[in-house]
């Protein structure tokens, strides 16, 4: 069993590393794919495993993006002058300045988003069910609008990020690698977390929070830790995405509530929420479908995507992994086991 799993991971690692060399024309799309995998997986930590359907995780993505932008620029320039002189002057970053700024920017984005989720948790985790979903959606929408009013970070017209110092091909590979790395780290961390007592605790919160509370589980603490983990990765990937795109502005790039914000939920549902692999499978499938419709059904792509969403929600709520689990329970260890009982326990 361990051997098979190890082989699977080796296969994914190999494919992930080889793909950009074989299909360099799709490298941008494949980087986006890993971002989607990360988003769906970390959304599922709350939405699937803990039963808190957040529609506002994109807040951490956008805030991370802006935090990293400010850090990267502020280390060497005056941010206000940089943003207000948009286009007029082209600030130069040496190799060292660029990579150091990027590294610290991504870290700051992760921890900044984590802190934000901790503070938001005090307010939001008083809400349950649809109220939590709408409340977090409200925060994401408001965050985008608010960011647009802050002139320090360029307001509605945004910031152009520092230029990558090396060749364009290397730039694409570099950001692809970052996305792949972050998605892999997130996946392995979640995998470990779900195997610990913490994983069971958030499952318990999903199944019956009042019971969990009555059994002495410190629910608020667990919920905040869960959201902080999600926020950390969303902040980091936001920082990476901002640098990958090269230009950030509040509504379309940093806080895309109606696209990325909803896609991550749809992907987790498609693959099967509450499972480790469901969001990964869902993200890959969704991304492929999305890109195919964008290429072959241009003009109708949103209709096609909407249709798939509706079919998923109405006829296929359990998702791919949920369906597999129902069809092949033995494979997932859901069996009656008549093993002879312990003699000393029986006495």
């Amino acid at each position: 069993m361990l051997g098979r799993r190890f082989l699977l991971y080796l296969l994914i690692l190999g494919a992930g590393l080889a793909a950009p060399w074989f299909y360099p024309q799709y490298i941008q799309q494949m980087a986006l794919l890993w971002i989607m995998v990360l988003m769906a997986s970390t959304w599922d930590l709350l939405g699937g495993q803990m039963g808190y359907n957040s529609l506002g995780n994109i807040t951490f993505f956008g805030c991370g993006m802006y935090i990293s932008a400010v850090v990267q620029i502020a280390m060497f320039y005056d941010v206000a002058a940089y943003t207000s002189a948009f286009g007029a002057i082209k600030p130069e970053f040496t190799d060292e300045q660029y990579f150091m700024g990027l590294f610290l920017g991504i870290l700051a984005a992760g921890f900044g988003a984590m802190l934000l989720s901790y503070l938001l948790g005090f307010i939001m985790f008083g809400l349950r069910g649809p109220y939590f979903a709408i409340g977090t959606l409200g925060i994401a929408t408001a965050a985008g609008q608010l960011m647009g009013t802050i002139d320090y970070v360029g307001g509605g017209s945004g910031i152009s990020m520092p230029f990558f110092p090396w060749a364009v091909e290397i730039r694409a590979l570099f950001f692809y690698g970052l996305c792949f790395f972050l998605a892999a780290v997130a996946h392995l961390l979640l995998r470990w977390i779900y195997s610990t007592q913490f994983g069971l605790a958030i499952n318990a919160i999903r199944d019956d929070e009042d019971k969990a509370e009555a059994m002495g589980i410190p629910t608020l603490k667990y919920k905040q830790i869960g959201w902080a983990i999600t926020a950390f990765f969303m902040g980091c990937i936001g920082a990476v995405f901002g640098n990958m795109v090269g230009f950030i502005e509040p509504v379309e790039v940093a806080f895309p509530v109606a696209t990325f914000g909803i896609f991550m939920v749809a992907m987790a549902l498609l693959g099967g929420k509450g499972t480790l692999w469901g969001p990964v499978i869902g993200a890959v499938l969704f991304h492929v479908i999305k890109e195919t419709t964008w290429t072959y059904l241009l003009g109708w792509q949103w209709v096609a995507l909407g249709l798939i969403l509706i079919i998923n929600i109405v006829y296929f709520q359990e998702g791919i992994m949920g369906w597999l689990q129902r069809k092949f329970p033995e494979f997932f260890g859901i069996t009656i086991d008549h093993a002879p009982p312990d003699k000393d326990a029986e006495q």
């Binding site: 499952n203 199944d207 009042d210 019971k211 009555a214 002495g216 629910t219 859901i334």
Partner: peptide
């Protein structure tokens, strides 16, 4: 609060049985 009392070692079961129904 409920959680604090439970953590003191005073526990209750429910009349309408409550378990974590999606877990084994």
């Amino acid at each position: 609060l409920v959680g604090q009392i439970a953590r003191l070692g005073l526990l209750r079961t429910f009349q309408q049985t409550r378990i974590y129904s999606k877990m084994n």
